[in-house]
Each structure stands twice: as structure tokens, then as C-alpha cells.
Nucleic acid binder design. Structure first.
Lengths: 361, 361
DNA sequence: TCAGAGCGCTCAAGCGCATTAGTACGCTGG
DNA sequence: CCAGCGTACTAATGCGCTTGAGCGCTCTGA
């Protein structure tokens, strides 16, 4: 009956021994105070003397006590967990390094606060909404991180309805009462890319974009159009794809085979850019002599193909950190707000150069 | 005071309206029975008539009721959540597609049972152990999935001590009371690779392995040695790396620059294989004319470099599914067991061929 | 001198659910 | 006619924690 501190040494008898978790009651007994006192002490609430607080803390430490999140959640404290759901078909998911990096960044911040991350992969946005509903009803999460914002997105409305705090990663058009936003400046980035290509002498550019339902795809397309207009370019357009290497390759083939072939290609991700580069080579053309290539996303892949790809590089881990920080601020009762991410840097490698002189016919 | 069903239509007044979650008490009231009856009815326990059960079910549905996981967990039912922690530095993480694929597979199975996945990224195994301890103490998870098993791994012992069910993905040497295992047949796979290379005529092979602390690295190295012995090969060895493209490239350069250069290189992941291929080309050698390359992991990357890489392909999503299924079996009270994964297939592409005839000097 | 205000602490209620121990009722069999 | 039993339900606990309402005590100020 004498409960010893969890030593773990008795491996012999341990077997399936569940090694009971200590509760506040145990602490209270040992410290000779009431459970409430323990609660106050451990939560840095007034109502206990420093001496008692210290004693309780020591006992708790010695016992290896940790609050049961279940009990905490039940008494109104929230679940100490945030949710992240990614709505992409499983196959598409693997290619990108984006998500894991983002998640690493998120974790760094959540770990500081001992917040858990509930993660789920689903097929589409409808399923994602269902997950939010379920999480909310089951009391599982205190807030969520929303990725891949879309044009005409049902999620912000749903989160409003549920009163679930959230951070939209990527940025939305409108604002919502308890949704913060971390905005990526796609418009500015596109302007930088187009500006640089223009400077190099390119007048005909094709943007091989991603899924057209995504908000940032839309922003990039608009920005491209605006920049084209500003520079007086007419040979500029966007083509949407599904981000896959196969579609990237197919579109590249189609575009370069057309009457007025572009001299520069801007790809919305690294995988398509690499696939596109391969197609260009396969057509007997040279990168960057005949065609310049820019990848919107930097990764090892960009330095793994030849020539090395010029890429728009952003600190995805920092992106995650920032988003998580916004969410914790929101959970602490802060007001929703919208913060910008720094502009991605254009890293010029070997895949961009002036266009061939004979262009223009 | 009249509580209406959560319609969500009143966006006007909603604002921060938290839209109260229905509880069993609400159901009990509406159905005109006691809370206990509701509990019995909803959990398919005897003690209520079919009529009442139906009525209760309907009311619950209509109210959009979902059990609070917190409350459930508190009353001893477990947290309906499993944990997965990945111990890799953030930078290393993004490169492979392995994890997200694995997770997709895991999710498929967990989703069926409405189990949540608590995900965490940490720096090293010590931190991972701390996370397990915390999760256990906080009552957060019912079981865990352990990835990257190591030689001399502290995690199985810890899980035993905590009595936390788990599934080791990749396979361990010894068995543990409540740990199931999903074993990858690295030995067989390596045998297949070496066999094929031998068949092609290769007699000198270098295996550019991954982290030497990982159990599967060890298994592959041993298997390589065994196969070499079996075939009577003496020019065969393994070099461990950190899986990064830079180390893969560096080792490749070193190995090919040495006196007796190998004619075949086996890389433990796709990133290193691609980087290695680039180095070979940079040295003025041709793949596969001068050097054959095999990648232990298939991905878009293998079809993105030239020549396309021969690769060992396994169904990572299925791997995840299988592991998750083992875990749910364990949670259902099943006994721990050890199941094998199917042997990966060797997909021969353009990077493997007979060695140059002049070899042997 | 005594009301009033802290201070440090205990008590008890309650969060939403599962579960064990009743309770009321109708039925059967002796 | 009633013991005995199964059925369909309710009442009461408890899980581990938070929290508002006390409750004695000491210290202050008029």
C-alpha cells in the first residue's frame, strides 16, 4: 500500500503494471493541504502562501504530476490542443516539402506552451468542415490553423459560426471576428518576378499556376495580369494545373509547342518547375538560353536538377512559427488581426537569363 | 431561454456567440428520460427498450450531439487519440515524402474509428521520450506509433514502463508485451538489390546508407555484408550519412575518386541518389554506362532527374494503414504481434546497367 | 475598541459522461 | 396470493480538475 515514486526499476514485476498516474489528490495528501490549495498553487493563482506554493510544487515535481488534459478540458479550461487539417488527396501530398516544414515551425511555438497539435488529412474541403464540426462538438481543440485558403471558402464562415478561433495561413480577402490571418504577399512576389524577367528582356511569359480554387493562385494570376498591363506586355498568361509533375510537364509541352512560345516560364511549385525543365531539355531547347524558368518554391529539388533553378524562396518554418504565434495570441484572448509575411526572396540561379535575340516574330 | 437547434442562420446576431454544444442532459430532457438511459441507449448497452433507444438516437442526431472526448476520457474511456512523434531536425524533415505519405495511410484507418492523431516533431529521441511521458501523464493518448526504430532504442522500454500500447513502424529486434511491430524486410530487399546488381555483372558496390543509429540502416548494412559474402564479393561496403543531399553528394565524390572505384551505388534515399547522380555527371562519368545507381525509396524525384533512377518502391500509404490497423487492434485489447510488410519492388529504370567491361584492374 | 479588510486556506459544486446500485412494474410459477 | 425474477428505467457516484463561496485569523484605521 505504500506508494513509491515511479521508479521504473522494478521491470521484473512491472509487465502490464499500468503505473498509476498521480493526481492532485495525491499531492494534496502528501503536502498536507486541500486539493484547491494545490490547484491554486500549481496554477500561480493567489490564495496560497509562497511557502505552501513551493512545497506543493516540490511534491508535484517529485511525484511527476501532470494535469490531466481531460479533466482540465472538462472544467472549462479548453483542450490545450489546436487542430490542423490538410485537404489534399494523399497522392498530391507527398510531393511538397511545404507542409512538413510548416508543421515544424508550428510545433516549435506550440511546444513552448505545451499545446498539442491534432492533425488530420482529408480529401476535400467539405470533409475538412466536417472535421471542424466534430472537433468542436467533441471539445477536442481550442483553435485551428487553416491552410490553403480558397476563393469562396466555406471555412471562415463555419469557424465564425462555431466560435472557434483560427488562423488562416495564406490570407483571405475579407476579415472575420475571430480569425487571424497570416498573409503571403503573392502580389508583391509576382511583381518582383515579372519585374526581373522584364528587366532581363522577356516579353512573353507563361505562368503555370496551381489549383485555381486556391486563393493564392487567384492572387498570383491577377497580379501577373496587372504587372503585364503595367509593363505593356500582351504575351502573358496563366494556366492552372493540379501541381503534379505530370501536369506541369504536359502544360509545358503544350505551351512551348504553340505558335508564339514564351521565353519565360513561372511555375507555382518546385515539382512542376523541375518537371518543366526536363521537358524543355527533352524538346531540344536549352535552359536558360532558350527558355528561362522560375520556381515559386525553393527546395533541394531546385538544386538537384540541371541547370539549378531560380526560385522564390520563403522561410516556411518561420511561416509556421508566425501562424502558431498568432493562434496562441488569439487563444490568450487577443483580438483577431492580419499580419503580413515578409516578401519571398528571388534566388537567381542558373535557369534565368536574357531571352534569345531572335524572339519577337 | 428557448434553445433552438443550432441553425447558424442568424449570422447577424451570432458574432461571438459560442453556439453551446449539446450535452447528454439536453438529450435526456428532450427525450423525456434520464441521463443514464441516454448513455445506455447511445452506447448500445442493454437496459433500454428499442423504442426508447431509437427515440434517444433521433434526438441526439437532431441536436447534433457528439460525446465530449474530455468527459469520456475522464470517465476512463481513453482519449480516443493516438500519438505520433517524429524525431528529426526540422531541416531534414522536409526532404522526404515518406512521412506525409505514411501519415495519410494512418489517417485513413484512424478516421474510420474517429480517432484523433496527435502529432509532434522533436529534435531527438530524448525529447521524444519526454513527449511520451507527458502524453501519458496528461492522459492525452491511448497509444502511439513509433517511427525510426533505432539500435539500442530507449522507447520500447519506456512504453512498456508506462503501459502505453504502441506499434513500432519498421521493426525491432526484440519483442515487448504491448508493442506490436510492422516489420520492413530490409534484409530481403537488400538481397534483391545486390542479387540484381550481381546478375548485371557488378562486383564492386558501395552502399551510401542513412543514419547509423537507425535500426534499418544496421539491417541493410548487415544484409549487404551477408550477400557480399554469399556471392564471394570483396569490394563491397557501406558508408553512413545523414540522408542529406549534400552528404550524399560528398560521399559520392569521395567514393568515386578513390583508387578502386565502385561500379554501382546504392543510396538509402531518393534525395541522396539524385544528388549522387548529379555528382557522377559532374565528374564526367555516365550513368548507367560507368556507374549504376539504385535509390532505396521511390518518388517523383526519381523520375525527375536524368537518367531516371532505378528505385526500390514500397507502398508507404499502405504501410501507414497497416500500422494504424495494428494499433487499433491493440487498443481493442488484441495481443501484441509482429506483422511483415510486403517486400518492396525494384523498379528498374535507366540508372542501372552492366558495368563497363574494363573494370577489374 | 471594534468594524472592516485582507490573507491563506478549506468546502462543495460542477464540467459531461460511464457505471453501479437501486426502484418500480409486470409477469410467471408454486 | 405472494415469493421470485427479469425488464426498463432512475438515482447516485466518481473520474481529476477549477472555482466561487465561505471561514477563521491577523492587521489596519478611525
Amino acid at each position: 500500500m505504500t506508494d513509491s515514486p515511479p521508479s521504473g526499476k522494478d521491470t521484473q514485476a512491472a509487465r502490464r503494471a499500468p503505473a498509476r498516474r498521480p493526481t492532485m489528490k495525491d499531492i494534496a495528501q502528501r503536502a498536507g493541504v486541500s486539493e484547491s490549495a494545490v490547484s491554486f498553487a500549481l496554477n500561480d493563482r493567489p490564495g496560497v502562501s509562497e511557502i505552501t506554493r513551493d512545497r506543493v510544487r516540490r511534491v508535484a515535481e517529485q511525484l511527476g504530476w501532470r494535469p490531466s488534459t481531460a479533466a482540465r478540458a472538462l472544467s472549462g479550461e479548453g483542450a490545450a490542443t489546436v487542430g490542423l487539417v490538410v485537404a489534399r488527396p494523399a497522392a498530391t501530398l507527398g510531393v511538397d516539402s511545404f507542409f512538413l516544414q510548416l508543421i515544424s515551425g508550428i510545433q516549435e511555438v506550440l511546444a513552448e506552451r505545451q499545446l498539442g497539435l491534432l492533425f488530420q488529412v482529408v480529401e476535400d474541403v467539405a470533409a475538412e468542415c466536417a472535421v471542424y464540426r466534430r472537433w468542436w462538438a467533441e471539445h477536442r481543440v481550442d483553435g485551428v490553423l487553416v491552410v490553403d485558403p480558397r476563393t469562396d471558402d466555406p471555412r471562415p464562415g463555419l469557424l465564425d459560426e462555431l466560435g472557434l478561433p483560427g488562423v488562416v495561413i495564406g490570407g483571405l480577402a475579407d476579415t472575420h471576428p475571430n480569425l487571424s490571418q497570416v498573409r503571403a504577399d503573392d502580389t508583391g512576389a509576382m511583381a518582383a518576378v515579372v519585374g526581373r524577367l522584364y528587366e532581363l528582356g522577356h516579353r512573353s511569359v507563361v505562368h503555370i499556376a496551381g489549383l485555381d480554387s486556391l486563393a493564392h493562385t487567384d492572387r498570383r494570376i491577377r497580379s501577373l495580369r496587372a504587372e503585364a498591363a503595367r509593363h505593356g506586355l500582351t504575351q502573358v498568361r496563366s494556366v492552372t494545373t493540379d501541381y503534379s509533375d505530370t501536369e506541369g510537364a504536359a502544360v509545358t509541352r503544350r505551351v512551348l509547342g504553340a505558335r508564339a512560345a514564351p521565353t519565360a516560364l513561372v511555375y507555382d511549385n518546385d515539382v512542376m518547375a523541375a518537371a518543366g525543365a526536363a521537358v524543355v531539355a527533352g524538346l531540344g531547347l536549352s535552359v536558360p538560353r532558350d527558355v528561362s524558368i522560375v520556381s515559386w518554391e525553393d527546395s533541394v529539388l531546385c538544386r538537384m536538377v540541371h541547370p539549378w533553378l531560380t526560385a522564390l524562396s520563403r522561410d516556411t518554418i518561420a511561416f509556421g512559427r508566425l501562424a502558431a504565434r498568432e493562434l496562441t495570441a488569439l487563444l490568450d484572448g487577443g483580438a483577431a488581426r492580419s499580419v503580413p509575411m515578409p516578401l519571398p526572396r528571388l534566388i537567381e540561379r542558373e535557369s534565368t537569363a536574357p531571352p534569345p535575340p531572335l524572339t519577337g516574330a
